[in-house]
Design a protein around this nucleic acid. Structure first.
Lengths: 350, 350
DNA sequence: GCTGCTAACTAAATCGTTAAAGACACCCGC
DNA sequence: GCGGGTGTCTTTAACGATTTAGTTAGCAGC
C-alpha cells in the first residue's frame, strides 16, 4: 500500500491472476485473447491507474522507440527561431505526427560534447546542415541506424537538398538584367573563422565542396561574369548567423557608405539578410527598388507578406522536411533527392 | 562474426575479461576503477565500435532519460511556426541544453489519440496553452511525474504565466487615450466552436476562467468602459489560428468595409493579427496610424523590426520558457510564477 | 600475527516489457 | 476415434544496462 511505486504490467497480471504476456497482449494485440478478458484487463488497468506499457521498457525490448531525432547544426535556440529551419521542422513534424512518431531535438554541439550514446534512444536521425567543424555524423553516429542528411552530403548517407548553384545563378542573372553600377554580395557563413563584416583577402574561405554558401556564391559569380563583372572586384560581406541581430550591424555599415560607394544592388544569400536590409534602408529614406535593389534566397513567408515583396529563390523547406521524414520512416525510398526551386520576382528587384 | 548485432557492454566485458559492472563504471564512475584499466576499457570500446551505454537500457534501469517533453496544444507544424511558441521553445531548449537534457516535442492532439503510455519516456513535462477540449493533462498524464504548465492553470500543477487582463487593459487604455470613433476587437480563439470571422450573439464563448483570450478580452472591455464605450457595442472578430493565412481573410473583411463603417482603431489580441492588418492596410493605401491605428499583443521581434513599429504588450516568452525549464529540472522552486509584461508604444498607435 | 581499512573489482538481482514456443482444451471432418 | 487446426492463455528467456552487496588483496598500525 504505502510504496507509491508506479503500477506495472506485472502488478496488474498478479492482481487479475493472469500472466503478464496476456496483459501485454491486451494492450498490443487484441486478437490474441478473448474480448471478455481484454475488457476485464483494461478495466482493472484503469482502476489501478495503470497507463499502458512503459515506453522505456518497451523500447528496450522491441528495439524501437518511435522517436526520430533531428540533429541541428546550430544551437536549438537559434534553429527554432530561424524561418528556414522552422519550416523544415514543421514538415518533419507533420509527417512524423501522422505516423505516430515523435520528434527529439538534438543540437550538433550538444551531441558532441555530451555522452554520445545518449542519442541511442532514437530509431533514426535527420541531420540538418552540419558544417565541417561539427561534422560529427560519420564519426559519432552509429552507422547501424538510419540517417538522412538535409542540405549537406556526408558520404554514404542519402540526402535531401536543392540545386544551390543554379538557383542562385538564376536570381543573380535576373537581378543583373537591369543595369547595376555597384553590386555587392552579402553572404552567409563563408569563412572558416567567425567573421561578421567585410571579407578581405586575408579570410580563409570554407572549402567549396562542403558548404552550401559556397555553391550559392559560385552561382552569383557565374552570373556576374556573364554580365561583365569581375567577381573578385565585387565586394563581399559575411554574416555570421542568420538573425536580425547579426545582420543589422553589417548592413548598417553597407548602407551608411558614402553615396558614391553605396551599392545599388545587393545580392543577399538569405531572405533574412534581405529583409533586414529592407528595414534599414527604409529607416534611412532609401527607396527600394529605386535607390537600392535587393534579392534574397529561401522564399520565407515573411518576405512575401511584406511590401515591397522580396525578389528571391523560393525553396520549399516544408517539403524538404516532409521528404526527409518520409525517407527516415521508410515511406519513401532512401535515395538522395533533389528538390526544385523557383525564382520569385517581387518588388525589391523587379 | 556474421551477426551484425550492436556490440553491447557485455560483449566488451567478455572481450576484456572483466565484469560488466566494471565496464559500466568505466563510463559512469571513473573513480571506481584504476585509471589504467579504464584506459584499456575505453580503448577497446573504441576499437569495437562501442558507443557507450545504450540509452534505452540505461533509462529503463535508472528510471531517468534526461528527456523533457513539451506538450503543445496545437499541431507541431503550427507551433513551430508561431513566433510566441517558438520563443518559448527556444527558452526551454536553452536551459535544457545547458543541463544536458533533450527536448521531445509532443502535440496535444497526438498525445490523446495515440497510446498514452508512449510519452512515459520523458522525465518531466512542460505543457503549453492547452485549451479545455484537449485538457488531457489531469486525465492522461501520470500524476507521478512532474509537469509545469505554461499559460494555463490546471489544478494542482505549477504554472508560468503573465497577467493577461491588466496587460491588455494597459495597451487598450493607451490606445483609447487618443479619441477613436470606431473601435473593433480582433481576438484569438474566443469561441467554443471553430469560427473565423465576425462574432455574433449566437456564438458560445469559451469559459472565462480557462482561456487567456477571455482574460485579455476582459482587459479590453474594462478600458473601453472607462472611456465610455459600451463593450457589447464594440464589434468583435475571431481568428481561429494565429497565422497569416487565417488572419488575412478576416482582416480583409474588416478593412474592406465602407469608409463610414471601417474601424479607425483595431485592438488585436496578437502581434500576428496586427502585423497582418498592417500589411493589408498598406496594400489598400490606408495610412497607419493616420487612417487606422492598431495595437498588438506579445511583442514578437518581427513587429519591432518593421516600420511602423507595432504598439503592443511585450511578454518575454523566451524567459517564460527558461523559467518553465528550470522548474521542471528542479533548478527553480516549483511554484507558480507570474512574469512581467511591458507596454511598448510603437508607431502603429502612438 | 591479527585487526581494520581502503582500493579495485565481481556476482547477481533488477528495471518493465515483449516474443517465441509450448500447453491445453475444444471442435471439425472423415 | 484420431490427426489436425484454432483459440486462449502461460512459461520462459531475452533486451542492455546499473547497483547493491559482497570478495579479494594489500598495507598500516600495534
Amino acid at each position: 500500500m504505502c510504496p507509491p511505486r508506479r503500477t506495472t504490467l506485472k502488478d496488474l497480471a498478479r492482481e487479475l491472476g493472469v500472466s503478464t504476456a496476456t496483459v501485454s497482449n491486451a494492450f498490443n494485440r487484441p486478437d490474441q485473447l478473448s474480448p471478455r478478458l481484454r475488457e476485464r484487463i483494461l478495466g482493472e488497468a484503469k482502476r489501478l491507474g495503470y497507463r499502458g506499457p512503459d515506453a522505456k521498457a518497451r523500447s528496450l525490448r522491441t528495439g524501437r522507440s518511435r522517436i526520430i531525432a533531428v540533429i541541428l547544426a546550430e544551437s536549438l535556440t537559434y534553429s527554432i527561431n530561424d524561418a528556414v529551419a522552422s519550416e523544415l521542422l514543421s514538415g518533419i513534424a507533420e509527417v512524423l505526427d501522422a505516423h505516430g512518431h515523435t520528434l527529439l531535438l538534438l543540437s550538433g554541439r550538444q551531441h558532441i560534447s555530451q555522452a554520445p550514446g545518449s542519442s541511442s534512444i532514437a530509431d533514426g536521425f535527420i541531420a540538418y546542415g552540419l558544417m565541417p567543424p561539427s561534422l560529427m555524423v560519420s564519426a559519432d553516429l552509429p552507422a547501424q541506424r538510419p540517417l538522412v542528411a538535409v542540405d549537406f552530403s556526408p558520404a554514404g548517407y542519402p540526402t535531401v537538398h536543392i540545386d544551390n548553384e543554379p538557383s542562385s545563378y538564376r536570381v543573380a542573372r535576373h537581378a543583373l538584367s537591369t543595369p547595376a553600377r555597384r553590386v555587392a554580395i552579402v553572404s552567409l557563413r563563408l569563412t572558416e573563422a567567425p567573421c561578421n563584416g567585410r571579407i578581405t583577402e586575408e579570410h580563409e574561405l570554407l572549402p567549396a565542396e562542403r558548404s552550401i554558401t559556397r555553391s550559392r556564391l559560385a552561382g552569383f559569380h557565374q552570373a556576374l561574369e556573364e554580365r561583365g563583372f569581375a567577381p573578385e572586384d565585387v565586394p563581399m560581406w559575411n554574416i555570421e548567423e542568420n538573425t536580425y541581430e547579426m545582420c543589422a550591424p553589417v548592413l548598417e555599415e553597407i548602407l551608411d557608405l558614402p553615396d558614391a560607394e553605396r551599392p545599388d544592388l545587393l545580392l543577399c544569400m538569405s531572405d533574412r539578410i534581405a529583409l533586414t536590409a529592407l528595414t534599414l534602408a527604409e529607416q534611412r529614406g532609401l527607396r527600394v527598388p529605386e535607390d537600392l535593389r535587393l534579392t534574397g534566397f529561401d522564399g520565407i513567408a515573411e518576405g512575401q507578406y511584406r511590401a515591397p515583396r522580396l525578389t528571391t529563390v523560393r525553396q520549399d523547406s516544408v517539403e524538404k522536411g516532409r521528404m526527409a521524414a518520409r525517407m527516415i520512416l521508410g515511406l519513401a525510398p532512401s535515395e538522395s533527392t533533389l528538390l526544385h526551386t523557383e525564382l520569385v520576382i517581387g518588388d525589391s528587384c523587379p
